[in-house]
């Protein structure tokens, strides 16, 4: 399968990239920066991993850079993983409009445009594609300082459910994976004490396993999940 993946250079995106390649998929990876980990994968999986440096904060450029220069209609798209995200942590009374807009461009506006053209590619190639958004547990359980970030993930969850309803008749599926807090760069700004308090709110009392998240994404992209659409799948160590 040909999979388009954003935010592929590190964290959960890199793990998703690895799992998809191990399963024999071809991955079209996007992120702002190219990392040594990604370069290693390009050597190991020569001809199966293609990378393009794109900053999704530039929403106006997404169509040209992604779908005219990278994943054209000649590449039938079977899956799209919307993983790239920009973290904006602050309390609401400090909300800054330009920071909010920048986050929404990366986390919401560009992903919606990517879904638009991913579906168009699937229609053109008559593929029953699968779309997977990466959300966050913060959209379901409140955390101080994450209101703005969580709101962007809530937007994706609503969009995914409606995508599923709108395009299900063509066999196109859309689901969301909702990870709990993971040990990635995204949570690196938190202190040990903050992290421990967050982990203690979960049933399993520890950080969410990045590999478990990545494998859930791969499952939702695969034919094994052919009857699953419009769902939010929580991979969060039981944050209940």
């Amino acid at each position: 399968m040909n999979i388009l993946l954003t935010g592929a250079s590190r964290g959960v995106g890199l793990e998703i990239c690895k799992v998809l390649l191990e399963k024999g998929n071809t991955v079209y990876a996007i992120s702002r920066s190219h990392t040594s980990e990604l370069a290693e994968l390009e050597i190991t999986y020569k001809g199966k991993l293609f990378f393009k440096s794109i900053d999704l904060a530039n929403t106006e450029g997404v169509y040209q850079t992604v779908f005219k220069e990278f994943v054209t209609n000649s590449i039938p798209l079977h899956g799209f993983v919307n993983n790239a995200a920009h973290a904006y942590d602050d309390i609401i009374t400090n909300l800054n409009l330009s920071k909010l807009e920048e986050m929404y461009r990366t986390n919401v506006f560009s992903p919606l445009i990517l879904v638009k053209y991913a579906i168009r590619n699937m229609i053109f190639n008559k593929t029953k594609g699968s779309i997977v958004h990466i959300s966050s547990i913060s959209a379901h359980t409140g955390y101080k300082g994450l209101a703005m970030y969580a709101s962007s993930k809530g937007a994706l969850e609503a969009f995914s459910k409606n995508t599923a309803r709108e395009w299900g008749a063509l066999g196109i599926r859309s689901n969301v994976v909702v990870p709990g807090f993971m040990e990635t760069a995204m949570s690196a700004t938190l202190s040990e004490d903050q992290k421990n308090r967050i982990y203690n709110r979960t049933s399993m009392k520890e950080a969410t396993d990045v590999l478990s998240v990545a494998k859930t994404v791969a499952f939702l992209l695969s034919g094994d999940a052919s009857s699953i659409t419009g769902q939010n799948v929580h991979v969060d160590n039981g944050t209940i």
Binding site: N73, R120, I123, F124, A169, L170
Partner: peptide, 12 residues
């Protein structure tokens, strides 16, 4: 759905 396909094919 047909109109969506028409649009995509014309664009291509």
């Amino acid at each position: 759905f047909d109109l969506a396909e028409l649009t995509v094919c014309i664009e291509d």
